[in-house]
Measured scan of single mutants.
Amino acid sequence: MSIQHFRVALIPFFAAFCLPVFAHPETLVKVKDAEDQLGARVGYIELDLNSGKILESFRPEERFPMMSTFKVLLCGAVLSRVDAGQEQLGRRIHYSQNDLVEYSPVTEKHLTDGMTVRELCSAAITMSDNTAANLLLTTIGGPKELTAFLHNMGDHVTRLDRWEPELNEAIPNDERDTTMPAAMATTLRKLLTGELLTLASRQQLIDWMEADKVAGPLLRSALPAGWFIADKSGAGERGSRGIIAALGPDGKPSRIVVIYTTGSQATMDERNRQIAEIGASLIKHW
């Protein structure tokens, strides 16, 4: 067993022997301040990774656009098919120029040779490549099948209805392509620590998230040296922004954090800054 596999296998073990965790309302004060600064709703939840206990939450059962955070769930569904012998990570998928959609920095470079399922998941999570996500959605049967996968996990809230990039439209009061912070946090925890996926697939999923290259201005910008984070960000229309993450000190994750916002007129930089400040408060009061 590799060191990384050992780390993920012992996530519940280490967490069980940690000192009790206590909620700190100071972080919620910052979440509410972010709402004021952005002029928009902000949803927040913080779960203990081992027990699933909610440590703090704000608007945990209000719907927010998922945006690209759905790509972690998508690759979880792909990995479940791999575990069941219905898919192979090494299978190569070929596609054409007509398949390319807006923001496809990886797939646009491989029109000639195609990409493997493993490479597509890596591109979808680490670079948020939209064509990679659409190609992977095709392998599982489309958005409705991802929703069905989530329902089978016990998540009857999260739903995907459309493809990239239309799913980022974020129309107010439109339930399409949305989740709730509580539902997303619980589902992410199941994917990373539950028995739904094999140990190898859980490790692969967290490795992809740990290698995320496009979430630097968010929670990662607030992390002290030595902290662990595996995350996936999302951005959408109407001032929408979000991030889902597993993080913790001492090089291992111990909490799940989900943050979503929508309806702001603020710039992307300002949305990023507010999420980073929430992260800084979380870490300060850990």
Rank of each mutant, 00 (worst) to 15 (best):
M66L: 12
T261Y: 06
D113G: 11
P249H: 07
S96P: 07
M66P: 01
M127I: 09
A148V: 13
G248Y: 01
M66D: 00
P20C: 05
H151G: 13
P217F: 07
T186G: 14
G239Y: 02
G85S: 10
R273D: 10
I283T: 09
L160W: 02
K109P: 07
R7G: 11
Q88N: 13
T126I: 09
P172N: 10
A211Y: 08
T27Y: 02
I229E: 02
A276N: 09
N272Q: 05
P60M: 13
Q97I: 13
A245W: 01
Y95N: 01
L192E: 02
S240V: 02
S240Q: 07
I125S: 03
S264N: 07
L247G: 01
V29C: 12
D269G: 13
L205T: 03
Q4N: 14
F6W: 08
Q97G: 13
K30D: 05
R81C: 05
D129P: 00
F149T: 08
N272I: 03
P25S: 11
S51R: 07
L199H: 12
R159Q: 09
E277S: 10
A170T: 08
G114Y: 05
G76H: 02
G39P: 05
R241H: 04
A133F: 02
R92Y: 10
V78Y: 03
L28A: 10
Q4I: 10
V257F: 04
V214P: 05
L192Y: 07
A182C: 13
N130G: 05
S128H: 00
L10M: 12
F149A: 08
D36N: 13
L135R: 04
G52M: 06
G52C: 04
G226P: 07
L19W: 15
N50A: 12
V257E: 02
E62R: 06
G239I: 01
W286H: 04
E164K: 01
R7W: 08
M153H: 10
T187F: 06
T187C: 09
E46T: 13
W163I: 12
E62S: 08
M67C: 14
Y103C: 05
R255C: 03
G236L: 01
S221H: 12
V8S: 15
C75D: 02
T69I: 04
R92E: 08
A280Y: 10
R202M: 07
A40L: 05
I256W: 01
K30P: 03
H24Q: 11
Y103I: 04
E270M: 13
D36I: 14
S240F: 03
T179R: 00
I243T: 04
P143C: 06
F13T: 12
R202G: 07
L28C: 08
F17G: 09
G52N: 08
D212M: 03
G142E: 05
S96M: 10
E270Q: 12
L100W: 05
V21T: 10
D155A: 01
L100F: 09
K190W: 09
S264F: 04
W208S: 03
A230H: 01
S201W: 03
G141K: 07
R255F: 02
T158S: 11
I93Y: 06
D113M: 10
I206S: 12
A15Y: 15
D177H: 01
A225K: 15
L197N: 05
H285R: 11
M67K: 02
H285S: 10
K144S: 15
E35R: 03
T126D: 07
K30L: 12
L120A: 06
A230K: 01
D269L: 12
A276T: 10
P105D: 04
R189L: 10
F13S: 08
V31H: 01
I206C: 13
L137N: 04
F13W: 11
G236E: 02
H151I: 10
L120Y: 02
T178V: 05
T27M: 06
I11L: 08
P105S: 05
S80L: 11
L223G: 03
M153K: 08
I125V: 12
S128Y: 00
A123I: 04
D48V: 05
I243P: 00
Y95L: 08
R118S: 15
E108P: 07
K252D: 09
I244Y: 02
G248A: 03
S128D: 00
R220N: 03
D113V: 09
Q265K: 15
E175C: 12
P165N: 08
N272D: 09
I11A: 10
E62A: 09
D269I: 13
D99T: 09
P105K: 06
L160I: 13
E169W: 14
L247V: 11
R241G: 05
T198N: 13
S2E: 05
S104K: 02
A245F: 03
Q274W: 15
L199P: 15
T186K: 13
A183L: 07
G226Q: 09
P65L: 03
T107R: 01
Q88P: 05
A235G: 11
A148G: 14
R159T: 09
R118N: 15
G141H: 07
R189D: 08
A77V: 11
G76P: 00
D36H: 10
P249E: 08
K53I: 14
F149W: 14
T126R: 07
L199N: 15
E35C: 05
L74V: 08
T198F: 07
G43L: 00
A15R: 02
V78P: 00
T262A: 08
D48R: 04
D174S: 07
E119G: 10
E270S: 12
T267C: 10
T131G: 15
V29I: 14
L47V: 14
L137K: 01
N134P: 00
Y103A: 06
L10D: 03
T262Q: 02
L150F: 09
Y260E: 00
R63H: 08
V29A: 14
T178C: 07
A9D: 05
V117I: 13
T126M: 09
A183H: 12
M115C: 07
R238Q: 12
W286F: 05
D231N: 05
G248N: 03
A182K: 14
M180L: 09
T158C: 03
S80K: 14
L192I: 15
C75K: 00
T112P: 14
T112C: 10
F13H: 06
G114S: 05
G85M: 08
L219E: 03
M184V: 09
I244L: 09
I11T: 07
R7S: 09
I259T: 03
G154L: 05
L205K: 00
E277V: 11
A132R: 00
R63W: 04
P181N: 01
S96H: 11
G76R: 00
D155V: 01
L19V: 15
R273L: 12
T178H: 02
D129K: 00
L19E: 08
L89H: 05
C75S: 07
G85A: 10
D231F: 03
V117S: 03
M209C: 06
G76I: 05
S201H: 15
Y95E: 01
Y260D: 00
L188W: 04
E169F: 12
L135D: 01
S281Q: 13
D33A: 15
V8Q: 13
F17A: 10
L282I: 12
N272V: 04
V117Y: 03
T131E: 03
G263W: 04
F58G: 05
E175S: 12
T187A: 09
K32D: 05
G234A: 09
T187E: 04
G226E: 10
R162F: 03
K190G: 13
V106G: 06
A235L: 06
G114H: 05
G85R: 10
I259Y: 04
L73T: 09
R63K: 10
C75R: 00
I206H: 08
L136C: 04
A16S: 15
L111N: 06
P143R: 04
T126L: 08
I11W: 12
L28I: 03
T267L: 10
E169L: 13
L49G: 05
E195Y: 07
P143G: 06
D161H: 07
L79E: 02
L137M: 11
F14A: 10
V21M: 05
R91N: 08
P224Y: 04
Y44F: 12
Q37K: 15
D129W: 00
C75P: 01
Y103D: 05
H24A: 15
T193S: 15
D212T: 06
N272A: 05
I206E: 09
R189E: 09
R91P: 01
K232R: 06
S254C: 14
F13K: 04
K284C: 10
L247Y: 03
N152V: 10
A170F: 11
P65M: 02
G114K: 04
I171S: 14
D212Q: 07
D83E: 10
